[in-house]
Write a protein that binds this DNA or RNA. Structure first.
Lengths: 253, 253
DNA sequence: CAGTGGTCTAGACCACGTA
DNA sequence: ACGTGGTCTAGACCACTGC
């Protein structure tokens, strides 16, 4: 940045800084490399640390950087594509399934979930927690809400609790004929518990995938899966992942 | 918040503040209502303005608040569900189509797009810009990249440029038989140009939906659509939107 | 012009990972 | 114990909106 700033320059410093760093990342750094620490970078660019951090935050949001307290800032690998499928998979917990069961509890779900399930707001449902890894990294945490009505064959004390019970619940669920499923994706921030499992700080940006499973014309189960937004690219469609990574794409200004 | 903080409290102030505000939003405010300004809120909670802002930022990210410079902070309505469909729609620009054509240029696409299209990195392609509104609000901006090879019938000076040319390009594109399409969703930040169209500041969080259209076993076109992450919930699946809004969902910690 | 949110500064201290 | 990123402060000024 020499002295060319004729055009009014109401461009924020952190924005300009982000672009400069972004280009430097493309040309002068390779994946996994650690950047100088924040205090030094700030000094080098002649800005306050807070301003430098604003630029780094953006780059992390875009999946270009990875920051870890006590360690440092490193250049992130391209986002991994995780398949979220489109219906053919059927019930959760079948065959291929990329998920690993964590545990199973019996609790009252959030009001919004209870309403969608058609269960009473005070009614406890089965809550199966699962987690998903991909490319050797934790990418998602899921909560599966299953009302008792969807697993009639389950005897009360079939299995005490934990993974064994989770498997029993999923097995019963799979007896129903799946008529369809609806998905939605939105941005959210990781609750404390999920953040821990995803190895992120609370409030980290996540992509929340909500799936409603329909059987017997009713909502048989609801899955709420939170994916790390910084490292994941969700892919839909039946033919694998789209190989487009928005890397060195030039920003306009 | 009385004086109950026995449990070690290594909980950041802004996080606690966010939760307090979140509950206040549920119980004491209604959609569209304006909050006190940041300086007053900060004083009322006994924190620095920067800390208060950190909490507000999170709430805005979660779609609970809407902030506009020079105006104020208001309570946001629930996110609108926008259908992103699952294949049956076919080519862009057909019939129902929720998009409005903005213009059409002829330019060299970003390297990642060029590679996916199989066009040369120096080769110019048709770039159709479209925008999408929903519930009376701008929700998405799109760039459609179409290599000349996909629209062979298009005579060079069929239409000079702008909307007329865009329609001609899409019409030609629709002559091909669509064999399939692949989608991916990831988090991004709005480039300056898109931000303006979405009525947001540069760098605002967006959901980037990339769609690859396949015809004659090749990539016939690529669409990159950026949706406002704060106000949108993307819905997939053929039976409309899932009516789950993650409103008064209690946070654990 | 007044009031709002957006940017920026120069400090301080804390929590965490590693050695 | 040290160095890292994470949190927090108390100011200042800027850019935009609406009256």
């Amino acid at each position: 940045m020499g002295t060319t700033q004729l055009e009014t320059v109401p461009e924020p410093k952190y924005w300009h800084l982000k672009n400069v760093l972004s280009e430097a990342l493309d040309s002068e750094f390779s994946v996994g490399e650690v950047l100088p620490n924040e205090r030094e970078l700030a000094a080098r660019f002649g800005v306050a640390r807070a301003t430098l951090r604003q630029a780094l935050e953006q780059l992390e949001l875009e999946g270009r950087l990875q920051r870890r307290r006590g360690v440092g800032t490193t250049v992130a690998p391209p986002r991994v594509g995780v398949a979220v499928g489109t219906g053919q998979h059927g019930w959760p917990g079948t065959a291929d399934d990329a998920w690993r069961i964590v545990d199973c509890t019996h609790a009252v779900p959030p009001a919004a979930i209870a309403d969608a399930l058609g269960s009473g707001r005070e009614e406890a449902v089965h809550v199966v927690r699962r987690s998903r890894r991909s490319h050797g990294q934790q990418v998602a945490a899921e909560r599966l809400y299953i009302p008792a009505a969807s697993v009639p064959g389950l005897t009360a004390i079939d299995a005490p609790s934990g993974p064994a019970r989770a498997r029993a619940v999923l097995r019963e669920l799979q007896r129903l004929e799946l008529e369809g499923q609806e998905r939605s994706v939105e941005l959210g921030s990781a609750r404390a518990e999920d953040a821990k499992e995803l190895d992120r700080l609370p409030g980290a940006p996540v992509l929340v995938v909500t799936t409603r499973f329909v059987a017997r014309k009713r909502t048989a189960a609801i899955s709420v899966a939170t994916y790390r937004a910084d490292t994941c690219r969700l892919t839909f469609g039946d033919s694998g992942g789209v190989e487009i990574h928005h890397g060195p794409e030039r920003q306009a200004s």
